[in-house]
């Protein structure tokens, strides 16, 4: 309980300090990018069907289906975002840290950038380093614009390029089961970690043999 409170407080602090640094803050409400409600997800299919190559922060090529076999927490952000995105990544970290070791060591976290022009793998490496997370399990991905849009559509993340280096986007964390299907979603910022933590516990308890291969 205490841990959860501290994590929440950290998220709130991050949000506050990030806001203060935003050069647009106070000028024009529209200069702050605004959250877009996420789309409902109406499918129970695997996201591993996505045929796309991504680059990790250490320059490796990776495909989503290489994440099969373990649960994956996935979110979409952009690196120069100073308001929502740091909170969102911190939310993923809060979930990661709230897990028992046995579950945490199997969790993969994927952070995909909306902004391939600016968020090069090098920049994503710097970005990831700021969060002090396990680089073996955390992947900060750079991809092609068309693939980013496909992934966003599959996740129900809405976004648009405002043309000034900012993006409007949904604030969404999605948990994929080991077969790549959406197991749980958490929309919004600094939300309680419980729903996704509980879903991860359920996945951990489900014997792999019972998991049905998805089409």
């Amino acid at each position: 309980m205490k841990t959860a409170f501290i994590a929440l407080a950290t998220g709130a602090l991050l949000a506050v300090s990030a806001f203060a640094e935003n050069p647009h803050a106070g000028h024009d409400a529209h200069a702050n990018h605004t959250p877009m409600t996420a789309e409902a997800i109406t499918h129970e299919h695997s996201l591993f069907h996505l045929d796309a190559d991504w680059q990790t922060q250490d320059g490796r090529s990776i495909r989503l289906d290489q994440l099969a076999g373990k649960p994956t927490l996935i979110t979409m952000i952009y690196g120069s975002c100073t308001t929502a995105c740091p909170v969102l990544v911190n939310d993923a970290r809060r979930i990661d840290r709230a897990l028992p070791d046995a579950i945490r060591k199997n969790l993969q976290v994927v952070v995909v950038s909306f902004d391939p022009a600016r968020d090069t793998p090098e920049r994503m490496a710097d970005y990831g380093a700021d969060y002090d997370v396990d680089a073996e399990r955390w992947h900060f991905l750079h991809g092609a614009p068309a693939d980013i849009r496909t992934l966003a559509a599959m996740l129900g993340v809405r976004y648009r390029d405002n043309g000034d280096g900012t993006f409007d986007h949904s604030n969404l964390l999605t948990l994929l089961d080991p077969e790549g299907r959406v197991a749980e979603r958490s929309e919004g910022l600094a939300r309680p970690v419980d729903p996704i933590v509980k879903a991860l516990e359920r996945l951990h308890e489900t014997p792999r043999a019972e998991a049905v291969a998805s089409d």
């Binding site: 529209h30 605004t34 959250p35 877009m36 789309e39 849009r149 809405r158 648009r160 409007d168």
Partner: peptide
């Protein structure tokens, strides 16, 4: 390409 992007005018 971006068929779902309209009507985004804020929180």
């Amino acid at each position: 390409e971006d068929f779902q992007l309209i009507l985004g005018r804020g929180d």
